[in-house]
Structures are given as C-alpha cells and as structure tokens.
C-alpha cells in the first residue's frame, strides 16, 4: 500500500487517475482505519487530501460552500452554523457525542459514506450539492444522486469530493435534527433532518423530511408522504403528528441492532422531534 500527500489538486487527480479503483482519498481517516482489515487488501494507494486547501466554510448570498476536508468540529463551531438557517448543521454534529471523531472526521468523508452517518441526512434535507473533481474537470451531483446504495457512492475512478454546497434556504426557514441510538456513543440507528420554509401566514410552503441510517436502501431518503402532509399547513402539533404518521413510506431495514418495526417507530418519533425542533426554531424567529 502506497501513501501520498500531495499539495496540489492536479497531483491528487493524477494519482487518483493512475490508481483508479485501488485508490482511496483520506482526510480524517476514521472510516479507513477502522475498516483496515477489510480494506487493506483492496487499496493500493492512500492519498491524503488535507494539504490541498480544502478546509474552509464560506458563506455568500447563494449559500454555504464547505471544503471537503473541513472537520465536523470546525462545522460545529463555525459562526454561520451556530445560529441562523444553518444552525441545524451545528446541532447535527453536536449529536455525535464523540469529540475525538469530530476532530478528525470531515464532511467530505461523511458524504462519501453512504450508511450510518449523520451529515448526509442533513445535507439531503437542504438539497445540497456535491462538487466532484478529477483530472477531467469538476462536476456536480445532488446529495440525493450522490449515494447509490449502502457504502456505495457515485464517484468514478479518478474522482474525489472537493466541496459541498448548501443553497441558502428561503428567508423564513427552520430545521431540526433528531437521532436514535442504543447508547449515547453509537452509530445512528435512525436519524432525521427536517427543514421547512414558512410563508407569511405561517404555513409551510416547502418541506424536507430526510431519514438516514435506518433505510432499507442503505442511504438517506426523503419521505415524500411526510413532506406532502406538511405543505399548506401551519406547523402545529396536528401537522407534526400527521407528517410523522405519513413517514411510513420509508422502508426500514431489519437486523440484530434493531428490528424494522422499531426503526419505523423511531423514524416516526424522529420526524416528530425534528419537526418540533424546527417549529421551535421558527418560533424563536431564527
């Protein structure tokens, strides 16, 4: 296994192109190192991408641009994430009660893992886009399209994630995140991010209900039914209950960690909790 630590993006692209499927970019290396028994035989080249200037959080009118190697804790403490429409990003990180992982794991890494992670669920709820770079140039995929299946993403050989873009939500918008685990330091069993945009009369004009970690598809999914149940309604307890009940369109997996039935229950509860938090944020006028 070879190791490279390029300081130019072109060099990184060239290495990725050269090693193709046998190369893996790393930043926080938390996933790679915790799975090394499985991965070492497959990987021929490890490419450290932390020296490529991809650690940044920029905020413009169009929204957020977060470099791929920005750590979870950097997101947590960024002013633009501590309050305002992107506050739920900080809240998402805060639900991971393992500081050491937050100091190492990056948004790019989390995005690439289609599975038991939290950030992609929130990104899905915000219609985020993933910017992919390679020797052939850059392209953009939506968060929804970026995940193909459990631990399977849309990167082609020679490509890597370089940036995550989160469009600025509409003026009055609020979001909430909820998570269910077996103990406080655990993989997520169910996570839910909701985001709503409210019109002047307080009714919901746009809704996103994203569910991750639990899905039979193995990747975060939106609940179309739950979202539909919110449109045109004020975000009160009845609307929340209706949306939660409607989230049964999310098919959940069944395994020794939790049954599908429990996961579905937690999806429902997660939608309730996340919407309540979003409603709380709306009331607070953020």
């Amino acid at each position: 296994m070879e190791y490279f630590s390029p300081d130019k993006l072109e060099e990184a692209y060239a290495l990725l192109a050269k090693y193709g499927d046998d190369a893996i970019p790393i930043a926080g290396s938390t996933f790679f190192m915790s799975h090394r028994e499985d991965l070492f035989d497959e990987v021929r080249a490890v490419i450290n991408i932390k020296r490529l200037g991809l650690g940044y959080i920029e905020h413009a009118d169009t929204g957020l641009r977060i470099g791929a190697t920005t750590t979870l804790n950097e997101i947590f403490s960024a002013a633009v994430c501590r309050s305002g429409p992107f506050r739920v990003f900080s809240e998402t990180v805060d639900e991971l009660k393992i500081n050491e992982v937050r100091n190492a794991a990056t948004i790019g890494g989390e995005v690439c893992i289609a599975g038991e992670v939290d950030m992609p669920t929130t990104l899905l709820a915000f219609d985020a886009n993933i910017v992919i770079g390679g020797a052939q140039g850059t392209r953009t995929a939506s968060m929804a399209d970026f995940h193909l299946g459990y631990l399977n993403n849309a990167l082609k050989p020679g490509e890597m994630v370089i940036e995550v873009q989160v469009p600025q939500p509409r003026a009055v918008a609020s979001a909430g995140f909820a998570k269910f685990e077996r103990t406080a330091a655990d993989l997520p069993i169910v996570n839910v991010t909701t985001r709503v945009a409210l019109d002047a009369d307080g009714t919901c004009s746009e809704a996103r209900v994203a569910v991750g970690a639990a899905t039979a598809a193995g990747i975060p999914k939106r609940s179309a039914q739950a979202e539909a149940a919110l449109i045109g309604r004020v975000l009160d307890e009845q609307a929340i209950a209706a949306a939660a009940a409607a989230s049964s369109d999310v098919e959940c997996i069944d395994d020794f960690r939790a049954s599908a039935e429990l996961r579905s229950l937690w999806v429902k509860c997660g939608v309730e909790d996340a919407l309540r938090r979003a409603a709380g944020q709306a009331r607070a006028g953020e």
Binding site: Y3, I26, G28, S29, T30, M33, S34, V46, N48, N73, N99, E100, V101, N103, A104, A185
Partner: peptide, 22 residues
Amino acid sequence: MGTCGSCTVLLDEKPIFSCLRM
C-alpha cells in the same frame, strides 16, 4: 477501531483517537 477512547492523544491540543490516525 475508535470505539473505546483508550488511545486518545492530543494532536495540536485537540483530542483524537490515535488508532484511527495514520
């Protein structure tokens, strides 16, 4: 594999799991 905390070191004053760091 980063699930127990016994390998924590401070890297530039920040705690990390040294078992997950190359």
